[in-house]
Simulated assay, not measured.
Amino acid sequence: MDQTAAFNALVRAYHSDLYRYAYWLSHDAAIAEDCVQETFVRAWRNWQQLRDQSKVKAWLLTILRREHARIYQRQPQAEHLDVDEMTFPAPEPHDDTQVQQLRSLIAQLPLEYREPLLMQLVVGLSGEQIGEVLGLEKNAVMVRLHRAREKLKQMANVQFPASQQESS
């Protein structure tokens, strides 16, 4: 398979995952698509630097995260968004109440826990892959994932009415 065909296969394989993650980061479809497109442009330019094909997804997510940060660096300071202050997009109409509540709870997690959790849930990365993207050891990622889940459980106990807790 030539380089162009291999890269096209890579785009087809990872576009959806990258878009979903970019949308979670930006909460804007146009910005998410711009991030994904720029990610693939940068990946194409640096294709020869990728030595381990098994790490391509983590490599692409690293590029995406950097591109997302660049977008906000290029905006005037008045328009700069604080990632910790961002709200998540409105749930889709077909989402049930539990999904809406879970989205709301995830949005309240500190960034250090929310980011690896979303990488696992939205993009499907392993602990090792998340560590590669975030520059952390796998054990540190696993601790953050565990703490994220524990915090979600604690928040759910506080926010969900007792009658819902008992019926679940």
Rank of each mutant, 00 (worst) to 15 (best):
E115A: 08
Q73W: 12
A30E: 11
A13D: 08
F40N: 08
D34P: 05
E85D: 14
A58T: 04
Y14G: 03
E79V: 05
L102I: 15
V123P: 00
D28S: 09
F40R: 00
R12A: 11
G124M: 06
R103S: 03
H68Q: 13
N46Y: 07
F88W: 02
H27S: 11
E112A: 06
V123F: 04
V11L: 11
V143H: 09
I31H: 01
A29R: 14
D96S: 07
I31R: 04
L18Q: 00
R114M: 02
L81A: 11
Q53H: 11
F40L: 10
L134A: 01
R74G: 03
A5F: 10
E38K: 10
G127D: 00
G124S: 14
A6T: 07
R45M: 04
R65S: 01
L50G: 09
L25K: 03
E38S: 08
A140H: 12
E38T: 11
V83E: 06
E115M: 10
E150L: 09
E112Q: 08
R147T: 11
A148T: 05
M119K: 04
P76M: 04
V56W: 00
C35H: 01
V99Y: 08
L121H: 04
R45Q: 10
H27D: 14
A156K: 04
R70H: 06
V83L: 06
G127Y: 02
R45W: 04
N8K: 12
K55A: 15
M119V: 15
I31F: 03
M86R: 15
T87F: 08
R70S: 15
R42N: 03
E79Q: 08
Q73K: 14
F88L: 13
E137L: 15
T39L: 10
V133A: 06
V99M: 13
P116M: 02
I63L: 15
L117F: 14
S126A: 12
E38D: 09
K55V: 05
L18R: 00
K55L: 10
A162V: 13
E150Y: 06
V123D: 00
D96C: 03
A140S: 11
P89I: 01
E137H: 15
E132Y: 08
H94N: 02
